[in-house]
Simulated scan of single mutants.
Amino acid sequence: MVAFAALLVRGQTNLLPPSRAAHAVDAALTANPGSYALGDAALDPAPPHYLHFTPVAGSAGSGATMLVADAAVAAMGYTSGSTGVPRANPKRWDKLAISSGHNDALLRALAGGDYHVVATVPPQHMYGLEFSILLSLFGHAAVHAGRPFFAADIAAALAELPAPRILVTTPVHLRALLDSGQALPPFAGIVSATAPLAVELASEAEARFGVPLQEVFGSTETCVIAHRRTAHEDAWTPYAGVALHPQPDGTRVEAPQLAQPVVLADIVELLGDGRFRLCGRNADLLEIAGKRASLGDLTHKLLAVPGVRDGVVFQLDDTDAMGIRRIAALAVAPGLSVTAILDALRGDIDPVFLPRPLKLVESLPRSETGKLPRAALLEALARDQGPGTGDR
């Protein structure tokens, strides 16, 4: 947060690569000539363009108010690469102030006033930036300085903050937290994003911890634009001023924090009360042999198979002898065989949409935020094609 603010007052832009992997950082630096990396770790050998600083405890600033120009490009957010190559999206300071105001109002409603945040998502991801760094810079929220990963770390971080506390997390972290059985100190609510949250998982979390869970919807391009209490409703409530316009290639989004409308690949159904339902993504829609399905729905059915703890269905780039792009899947299912999973899927999925191949893996190649970059999925599928793969 210190480095983020320091760059702002110097009129510089924070680059937010899709991950902390060396290749992702190098790509962001290469795409922005004259850029550099800043960190508090003493790296040996230090990579090119790396500046090391050592925070001084108890040091005091000049006391002068540090101002940031409204039109300043405060950050350059990169998409995750889950649908291809990461893309850069500039974020103006005044527009971030608007979106942060909406997020702050949502968390205030959960906490009943001022609140304190523990976030398990890294701040270079737009969701992490919005619900950690920016809440502190624009509002009265206090955010825990650490980024806890394991269940015991989350419990310790919550205990270090005064009430009311809010946990900002992802479905992957939430699943691990529930499976651990870790007891948590009292807190006011949960916020989740980065991947679709299953109703069953949301309901289990609310029942276990006795707090409401709000799932937020947005993108790197738009920031968060809507929310819902997933355990109790399937429709999303847009933030104030957000307007959605369905079109053939997705949905055009108009919002106060956008300088111009943005078209997302998400397909929505508008409801009469101003809310909307997500119906998949334009790129997820499949049509094979005159039949239609969506990758999102196929993934949901894979996850519904008893014993499947995690999984994803995706389409390959190569085609078969009929010129059709094959459908593949990765599944984490200890104790199950590929045959057992395919047999279970046959009851819910048309045979033309059964994943071939389906590969069993120990874990999905998720990023720090729970995303599944397409390149990582293809690499995992290609690795060790053997007994754990079904293609029948």
Rank of each mutant, 00 (worst) to 15 (best):
R10T: 10
T13R: 02
A24E: 13
Y36V: 06
A37S: 15
D40C: 14
A42G: 02
L43N: 10
P47Q: 02
Y50Q: 09
H52S: 04
A57Y: 03
S62P: 05
M66L: 14
D70T: 02
A72V: 04
V73T: 12
G81E: 07
S82I: 02
G84K: 04
P86M: 06
D94Y: 09
K95P: 00
G101W: 03
D104Y: 10
R108S: 07
H125V: 00
Y127F: 12
F131P: 05
S132P: 14
S132Q: 08
S132Y: 09
L135F: 08
H144C: 11
G146N: 08
L158P: 03
V168C: 01
T170M: 08
T170S: 05
R175M: 01
Q182Y: 05
F187D: 09
S203C: 02
A205K: 01
F209A: 01
P212Y: 08
P212I: 04
S219C: 12
T220D: 14
E221G: 12
A226Q: 05
A231M: 06
H232W: 11
D234T: 10
D234S: 14
A235R: 07
A240S: 14
V242L: 08
V242E: 02
P246Q: 11
Q247Y: 06
R252G: 01
E254T: 10
E254L: 00
L258D: 00
E269S: 11
E269Q: 15
G274K: 07
G280S: 13
D284H: 12
L286S: 10
E287R: 14
I288V: 15
A293L: 08
S294N: 13
S294Q: 10
T299Y: 00
L302T: 06
L303C: 00
L303D: 07
G307E: 01
D310W: 08
G311H: 00
V313C: 02
Q315N: 01
D318F: 11
D320V: 02
G323D: 09
I324W: 02
I324M: 06
R325Y: 02
A328P: 01
A329D: 05
A329V: 05
A331L: 02
D343R: 12
A344L: 03
I349D: 12
D350F: 08
E368W: 04
L377G: 10
L377S: 14
L378Q: 13
L378F: 15
E379G: 04
R383T: 10
G386R: 15
D391Q: 14
